[in-house]
Design a protein around this nucleic acid. Structure first.
Lengths: 132, 132
DNA sequence: CTTGAGATTCCCCTTACTGGAAGGTTTATG
DNA sequence: CATAAACCTTCCAGTAAGGGGAATCTCAAG
């Protein structure tokens, strides 16, 4: 599969896919003409990268997550530790997104017509920032 | 309030806070000694930036979100449109995080001891990528 | 009054892409 | 077959969003 098809299937620009190869996140075969030749496994890795990058995980986070199944030398205990750490991150992100969503919903609801909302949304914006 | 205190309250490094000022996301007062002097509103904006950046929103997304309450010239319909667009993004992100979490949980559960997991997790990694 | 913590600016470095040039390949068309 | 469009290659340079660290200044404590 050529890079264009993979780009479409993964939702990532070809530039980014080549970049991920440069930094060692995948190593597609090469066809006789020099074109990169991707497998479905590559597509899966790239879709995964697209998802987790857009959710705020760093490339190094993604590399760890990808190593969870890709590295057959890795010990199971190690896999579990990494996965559990990432699970905490994910739970926190979910909670924060829900907070953000509720805040925005409140803003939309209290935004009644022709002038700016007069609710004290600014405090909601900051999450649990009730410090002083 | 000096930048150190604000850094602690917002969870952002001082460097980043100055950077956000450089790109126009806030404009703290200056004390007589030249030090930046932050208000609680600044702290709220920064906490908000910290949260939404870590959730994968770009700085420009954040700028729009911040403008939802900061710009008194903005029309309400405009506010609603932006907020609703961001709400869709947030809902999608939440769904993706939940998918990621379930995938990782499955991995942890099926990771029984001393060798690499033998479940076909690689397909789970790619989300709903059942294309061919 | 000096010493250490914290502030300032400035400049360069890093991460993670992104755009564009210059050129080779494949595919569709006259 | 020719040739043009579409797609691929590498390479180099630029952007976005900070981070490191020097040189200097200021504030609080002893």
């Amino acid at each position: 599969m050529n890079i264009g098809a993979v780009s479409e299937k993964s939702g990532l620009p070809a530039k980014t896919i080549r970049h991920y190869e440069d930094i060692g996140l995948l190593k597609p075969d090469r066809a006789g003409n020099g074109y990169r030749d991707y497998s479905m496994v590559d597509v899966h890795r790239l879709r995964f990268l697209q998802r987790s990058r857009s959710l705020g995980f760093s490339v190094e986070d993604c590399r760890q997550l990808l190593s969870l199944y890709g590295d057959s030398d890795r010990e199971s205990a190690d896999v579990k530790a990494i996965a559990n750490a990432k699970l905490s991150d994910i739970d926190r992100k979910i909670a924060e997104l829900i907070g953000l969503r509720d805040m925005l919903r409140h803003l939309v609801k209290n935004c009644h017509g022709d002038s700016r909302p007069d609710c004290p949304i600014i405090e909601g914006l900051a999450g649990e920032a009730r410090v002083q």
